[in-house]
Design a protein around this nucleic acid. Structure first.
Lengths: 244, 244
DNA sequence: CGATAGGTTGAGTCGCATCAACCGGGGTGG
DNA sequence: CCACCCCGGTTGATGCGACTCAACCTATCG
């Protein structure tokens, strides 16, 4: 299985074999966690960048009274916190949603690779900006979209992000996350997630059995969810040309 | 009036007179807009970083059916989009909330200053990370907090951010934004914003007349809003020491 | 002095939450 | 091998928080 970070970045720039190798070298698996474990807690001092190689994870915050908000979902190829070195303490938690394999990359390893291969640096910038754009789109979802739109939008987003790392086939992908976690991410109760899924299924927009999500008609789901994929910035810039 | 960007960054690092001058030099006012104008639209190719010198602005998205979400609020000293160069197109709009004075800073100007004064580069990193942290906290607000908590939390945040650029006195600050805009930011209807403000006023947590916000007891408002200021990362790192 | 933008209030409705019960499947232990 | 458990999913009943619609009020400004 190819390195998901490499695959993802190649949606933005074409990387040379040498660049790919450099990335793979610094993202070797260093840590394995089970489902529902914390990768790093708030208040901790971050020591390295966590790159997800396998499995799903999330960023979340817990309010004093127990309410929990999943702030971002991390898929294979995602960098959990590039750059956090600058800050002294984590202001949120990183937890797994499924069993996860992580590469812990040191700040200096990243610096060196970026210094030697500026195009990788540019690709990492792109990845940061897309992450920020995703966060903004979640703000829109939570603020404006109804439950069906919100869930449909999330499905579109995750499907496209998984496709960008080669983890989908034509119309379906693994979808290993519980309704409770979906609720915490979308600001909805588990019960309402369940009813909303039922509705989406009834309207034929999705199929969801076990851990498998199928989107038979992606454009239809996009339309129903007011989903505009341009915020993912997945088209390569023709002005940024790489060798191969 | 001192440069608000300089003031803000000095919450993180101590800058030398030379560094301050360099920052001031590249953030001269270049554009003035009235209230409720667009600074840049979605689809546009970003050409420079917009630094707010005076007034309030916001990032927002508009859905096809007219629903509008204000995604971030920009105050004096804020950089609207450091780095967007990497992306081809804006995926959102930048608009003013009040009359605004902006410094349009070129990519190269920033690169040069950062290259010459690495500490400024580090401070700009800090500013980016705090911006991201604020965005995450909005996600939590929209997903989990009730209307009173949500508004209270926003007041705490804006008050502290304004204080960081010296735009508050003991307990109060300018608050020039309409209830409609507050609603678009917090995912609530104008009517409900109005009722929620009434409630906050009745409980003595805030006073809000005209364009003046007073928070007589900030800790009380923080407690009522589940506000934990640590995400703003406003304590200087003792390991990052500057001359003066 | 009228026009207009912003703020305020009431009445009725709806989306989603809460509480509670129940179902089904995979894993465990006797 | 079966009994049991537990987690995740499903469904119903009821209540609340926030929305919509609509009217009205107030301050500002040309």
């Amino acid at each position: 299985m190819p390195n998901p970070l490499v695959r993802k970045l190649e949606n933005f720039v074409r990387l040379s074999a040498e660049e790919r190798q450099a990335l793979e070298r610094i993202t070797q698996p260093t840590r394995r966690l089970g489902a529902r474990e914390d990768v790093i807690r708030d208040g901790d001092r971050p020591r390295h960048v966590n790159v997800i190689l396998e499995g799903w994870a999330c960023r979340y915050k817990q309010l004093e009274d127990g309410r929990r908000q999943v702030i971002s979902i991390f898929l294979p190829g995602d960098l959990c916190d590039p750059h956090v070195f600058v800050l002294r303490k984590m202001d949120h938690l990183l937890g797994t949603l499924t069993p996860v394999v992580i590469a812990e990359v040191s700040e200096t390893a990243i610096r060196e690779v970026v210094h030697q291969y500026p195009r990788i640096g540019e690709a990492l910038w792109w990845e940061m900006l897309v992450t920020a754009a995703v966060q903004r789109e979640w703000t829109v979802s939570l603020g404006q979209r109804l439950a069906t739109e919100r869930l449909g939008h999330l499905f579109c987003e995750l499907f496209l992000r998984l496709r960008a790392v080669g983890m989908t086939n034509e119309t379906s992908c693994e979808f290993p996350i519980t309704q409770a976690d979906l609720g915490d991410a979308m600001g909805l109760s588990t019960v309402h997630i369940n009813r909303t899924l039922k509705e989406l299924r009834a309207s034929g927009l999705i199929r969801l059995r076990g851990r498998q999500l199928t989107i038979p008609d992606l454009p239809a789901l996009q339309a129903a969810s007011l989903f505009d994929p341009s915020y993912l910035h997945y088209e390569r810039d023709p002005s940024v040309i790489g060798d191969d």
